[in-house]
Design a protein around this nucleic acid. Structure first.
Lengths: 340, 340
DNA sequence: CTGTTAGCGCCTTCAC
DNA sequence: GTGAAGGCGCTAACAG
């Protein structure tokens, strides 16, 4: 109906309340100076009446803080990262801040571009899930912006980080498979160069070796952390002369792809092929059969990460390791009945 | 090594280049005034040398534009919304803007809070996927901020919107099932009050009636748009005395849940129960069996939405309807062979 | 307790 | 083609 309505500024509120602009600030921010009850009420009324909303940009410029955090993920359409983003957004929102989302599409250049833009937007802190090592993030950290690296870390990083022990998780998963009596266990891992890929691989090898089982190179496949990646790896595995009795897939998405290959080929899971995974997203919970998995505590990871962001000075333990959980479902052979 | 390093400002660049700050602005923004080649080079060199990065906040304040768009989704961990967010982020990034993400967690209050914060952050435009009708978004639109509503729309909205024809899509899906010769077709719909739920429901009814098929109330289940919702609906369906021969599920997530129920109960899909869905996310592509679905053109939706945001004045057709696509896979009974 | 005022870093009109 | 200067809306000293 009415056209564009100019935003009301603090001056108008002050005028209406019959006070100075400073007092309006004091009321809005509860400080840094006290305000008498009566004038506070007048200001509040004026704010109400004018439907005044402070300009966050101006505030950010003057205060030197944008109340904005950045989150960079390799691909928001990956359920694991989406779950993290969901939890992180929640935490950040609760802290009264806003979330800037960057999707690097697994590209290093893109990552740097996003970082540069975030920098220009004066973010107060960065949550980072990288596609690789990330020297430029260090620059940011050194420039004084709190940085917390998630999921994929670089040992040499100075930045704070929140992760689960991927090696231990992979060992637990593989050991569990071994506990079932399986001896021929393949590993479908993620892209090379990622810490998660390497750690989960290392865990698998460790568990296999300690059980004196064959670590066959044909049974270590590399694939993207996606359903398509799992599908592809599964097909490559099928094309080989000898099939494993069980598979440890490095993430849920890959496992879903493998499940699909098994379905196509008429291979029963877990009767013919047992599967265990890593991540513990809902995808693993609702697949057919449901997937046994190493669950990462997403909420806790998000909470810890945001906490580190808000308390950057906590020198000492700026590296948090969250506990994973071995969730047993049908795919590994644990529950033989199909019904619940 | 070095501690916090103060940000370099335009003044330092100007000093180093031996010019005024205005000229620095001119070269950075390519205007609004021309600059001689020689001084431009000097400025560029100074920028390079000082590693100067303009302060986006200050720029936003002075220019009155934050180069920031907001996206509000009901739940970023829902793959459909995640896919939209992924595509939208891509488009927005290409346009040189940044994306502020808000996750309303399907809560109306939360939605309003996010909206308020976005407003304070001076977003230049809003992409909105609501949890319900949304009068407050209208306010924003009226205040001059471009708003584009996605997926779930309110017919009465003045705001621009991008959707697919949900009724037509649902009709196409249901007709396809009918074409297979199925006559007992159930509908698992989304939460009441959402336009997508209602339209897909309407489409199902229309197709059933035009084929003179029974529209049994027991076969219209309502459930959240999630895997858990589908699981629940599936179990409720199973508990009934008479089972349908086919199901049209209102979204992929629900279908995954239903697939899981079928698996548990030993019901073969599509031999005993045919399924068709709506959305066309990758979840539908990699399930076992793969799901026939009405695919929404995510990329196109995102492109259109961002286009509308960038060209808010395009009066007339500010409501874009994208074409859906019927994707046939195994779950409806189209492909009998399991392999590929 | 309240008012005045100098910035925050940048854009842009207006003189030169 | 270049420079000076007045804001953008708000914060936080610094004076009363």
């Amino acid at each position: 109906m009415t056209g564009v309505q100019r935003r009301v500024t603090r001056d108008e509120v002050a005028k209406l309340a019959g006070t100075s602009t400073a007092v309006v600030s004091y009321v809005i921010n509860n400080g840094p100076r006290p305000v008498s009850e009566s004038t506070r009420n007048k200001v509040l009324a004026a704010i109400e009446q004018t439907r005044y909303r402070p300009n966050g940009i101006a505030k950010a410029l003057a205060a030197g803080s944008s109340r904005t955090y950045g989150l960079i993920v390799p691909d928001i359409s990956n359920p694991f990262f989406a779950a993290i983003a969901h939890a992180v957004e929640d935490e950040i929102f609760d802290a009264g801040m806003v979330l800037l989302l960057g999707d690097s599409a697994e590209s290093k250049e893109r990552e740097e571009e996003i970082l540069s833009i975030f920098q220009q937007q004066q973010i107060d802190g960065l949550l980072f899930i990288g596609t690789d090592n990330h020297p430029h993030v260090q620059t940011m950290a050194r420039a004084g912006t709190p940085v917390v690296v998630l999921d994929r870390i670089d040992e040499d990083d100075l930045a704070a980080s929140v992760v689960v022990d991927n090696i231990a998780g992979a060992i637990a998963a593989t050991r569990h498979l071994i506990g079932h009596g399986y001896t021929e266990i393949a590993f479908v891992g993620g892209p090379e160069g990622l810490s998660t890929s390497e750690d989960r691989h290392a865990g698998w090898m460790t568990a296999m070796r300690e059980a004196a089982l064959e670590v066959n190179d044909d049974w270590h496949l590399v694939a993207p952390y996606s359903k398509a990646g799992g599908l592809d790896a599964g097909r490559r595995l099928l094309a080989q002369s000898r099939l494993p009795r069980a598979i440890f897939a490095a993430n849920d998405q890959q496992a879903i792809g493998i499940l699909r290959v098994a379905y196509e080929a008429g291979i029963r899971v877990p009767e013919d092929l047992a599967i265990i995974t890593f991540d513990g997203t809902t995808d693993a919970e609702f697949s057919a059969p449901p997937l046994s998995t190493i669950r990462q505590p997403i909420e806790e990871i998000a909470k810890s990460a945001v906490w580190l962001l808000l308390n950057p000075d906590a020198d000492g333990s700026n590296r948090i390791t969250c506990q994973f959980e071995l969730v047993l479902r049908r795919s590994c052979g644990c529950t033989q009945e199909k019904n619940r």
